[in-house]
């Protein structure tokens, strides 16, 4: 898909995110918007996956696990736009009897979701398990994850990081959304983590960085580099520096839109900034 076409998907996904969150006056728009370009690049360009006939085992397919499950609006929109389920279903987000729960779950058999997430810090372990299963199955596909940077404060992440390098889980590409923000403030204020680059390197990972984590070309180039580095004995970490709330001016530069929905006026402003390219749901 051309960069222009990918950018059109990004614009539509941003509209979906703010409309979904506005409709139920709840959800997490900030992190969702910050990772929109990444997930569009992953699902519309990078990964080999089968949206039309979802199988839980995903044999022969690349897999993605969202570890920071609170950014569910963006994964739901991307999955729907990629063809996993009808885009009309986005209107049910967080409503009673929906498959689009507040945080993603397999419980209601939503195509595209392979694990529940929301309680933070668990996705890397799950991805390692899926990656180990692929090795046992002689399946050369790649397992991808996304984590929040605040999520790295969970201890289980570092248990998993230690395991992945010690056991040479080299079919795994974990991306960290480094937006330097979490609910109570900046990551430095809440619990400074020092150099994530040095930490992952010290844990034995091959570490890449994307300085412009909302630039599709930069993301695509680094994902290609990461894929080329698989199979060489090391798990791969991408530190992706993003702008929380990207694409909606009043949501950028602050942690305050982590888990707050826009009002009617703010929604209108957000939509005015992002063109309807693929048709609203």
């Amino acid at each position: 898909m051309s960069a222009q076409d990918l950018q059109a998907v990004v614009s539509q996904v941003r509209r979906d995110i703010v409309r979904m969150v506005h409709a139920v006056n709840s959800g997490h728009p900030g992190g969702s918007l910050g990772c929109t370009e990444f997930l569009v690049a992953l699902y519309f360009e990078q990964m080999n996956h089968n949206a039309k006939s979802f199988s839980m085992d995903g044999v022969g397919e690349d897999l993605f696990f969202l570890s920071n499950g609170h950014i569910s609006p963006v994964i739901y929109s991307v999955l729907a736009r990629a063809g996993y389920f009808p885009v009309e279903e986005l209107a049910t987000f967080r409503k009673i009897n929906t498959r689009l729960q507040g945080h993603p779950t397999t419980h209601d058999n939503l195509p595209g979701i392979r694990i529940a997430s929301g309680s933070l810090g668990q996705g890397m372990s799950v991805a390692i398990g899926a990656a180990e299963a692929k090795k046992l199955n002689k399946d050369n596909s790649i397992v991808y994850t996304l984590h929040g940077d605040g999520e790295l404060q969970e201890g289980q992440i570092w248990e998993a990081a230690m395991y992945a390098s010690a056991k040479k889980v080299d079919n795994l590409i974990c991306t960290v959304d480094v937006n330097e923000k979490q609910i109570d403030g900046s990551t430095d204020e809440v619990l400074a983590m020092g150099s994530l680059h040095a930490k992952f390197e010290a844990f034995g990972w091959h570490v890449l960085s994307i300085e412009k984590g909302n630039d599709l070309n930069a993301i695509l180039a680094t994902l290609a580099e990461a894929k080329a580095a698989t199979g060489q004995g090391k798990p791969i970490c991408i530190l992706m520096h993003t702008e929380m709330g990207n694409g909606v001016d009043f949501m950028m530069g602050t942690h305050k839109w982590h888990g707050v929905a826009p009002n009617d006026e703010q929604l209108a402003s957000a939509l005015a900034q992002n063109a309807e390219t693929l048709g609203d749901y």
Partner: peptide, 17 residues
């Protein structure tokens, strides 16, 4: 690292283990 073990086990089921 029991927490990691439970997560890995969950992941291994994805692929039929």
């Amino acid at each position: 690292a029991e927490a990691n073990m439970m997560g890995i086990a969950a992941g291994m089921t994805i692929g039929g283990k």
